[in-house]
Design a protein around this nucleic acid. Structure first.
Lengths: 162, 162
DNA sequence: GTCTATACACCGATAGAC
DNA sequence: GTCTATCGGTGTATAGAC
């Protein structure tokens, strides 16, 4: 709290005029992050059919997570420092995001453009794979962000396409 | 340290007869974990050709990470609490493990059984995807461990096969 | 609204008795 | 080798002056 106060330019005690305690501050941060992620995806333009929508999701997820790398990392690392009730709220929001991807995969199966052994596992596998980019991607590295998106989309497409 | 001492059945001070400080304890734990992972993979029986070896790797990684879920989680969460020198040692061991997978992928490309846009990215993508299983897998859940292995292997194979 | 001062708990690590 | 006692530091949160 002293570090946060210093960054804002006040003393630690003054923070308690705006938040009841440290956990509320963390919870608001994580909740806002997840809600903004859901809004951003809702507003994201998407391609045609399940395959086009899936490509949009893959590119969106990589781009958004790289853009907000600090928040993504913090959300993961600090999640277990929330109490049970707050933890459940964040997990529910995460579940809603995962459901967005699973809906795409199910639609693809229904229209026959995708073939999957298990939509739930494919959902978790794809999200883990895409989120992993944040652990190694560096600005100015060997590959640019758009190239990385394209390469990952290629692997995802092959993994799930009919 | 007081909790560790209590778990072992001594007082906190007594721990310092066996370790110079807390960081050395953490470093040894993480280093041992990574070395045991490398040894276990070296001793793992593997299938024929690049595809067979890759299947062995996929199944091994899921199985080993689920078996040692606590150590895997701790290795990830506590990695940033090491000083720079110790951090570098653990990262080097992690790099050796990743190189094991990348070697398989390169061999597969050379023999023509695998087609990849980029071996380095495929390496990171596959490891992230497989490690992700530990975040949602629960003993006694909908799918058993071997079924999960098979489903993930199916997705990996499709993603990288020629 | 913000400051200074401080209460209170906990942490890693050490000193010294046994 | 293990204990008890304790040091110095840090953390969240609160009290009261301004």
């Amino acid at each position: 709290m002293r570090q946060i106060a210093a960054a804002v330019g006040v003393q630690a005690g003054a923070l308690y005029l705006y938040t009841p305690d440290k956990e509320a501050l963390l919870f608001d941060l994580l909740k806002t992050h997840m809600e903004e992620l859901l809004v951003a995806w809702a507003e994201e333009p998407r391609g045609d059919g399940a395959l086009g929508t899936l490509e949009s999701f893959v590119r969106f997820h990589i781009r958004y997570n790289l853009m907000r790398a600090e928040a993504v990392f913090l959300s993961y690392m600090e999640l277990r420092n929330l109490n049970a009730a707050n933890f459940a709220v964040i997990e529910a929001l995460r579940g809603r995001y995962e459901a967005e991807l699973e809906t795409i995969l199910k639609a693809g199966q229904a229209e026959g453009s995708l073939v999957l052994p298990d939509t739930k596992l494919a959902t978790m596998a794809i999200i883990a794979m895409l989120t992993g980019v944040t652990t190694w991607y560096r600005e100015g590295g060997r590959l640019g962000r758009e190239t990385v998106e394209t390469i990952y989309w290629d692997m995802v497409r092959k993994a799930v396409a009919a």
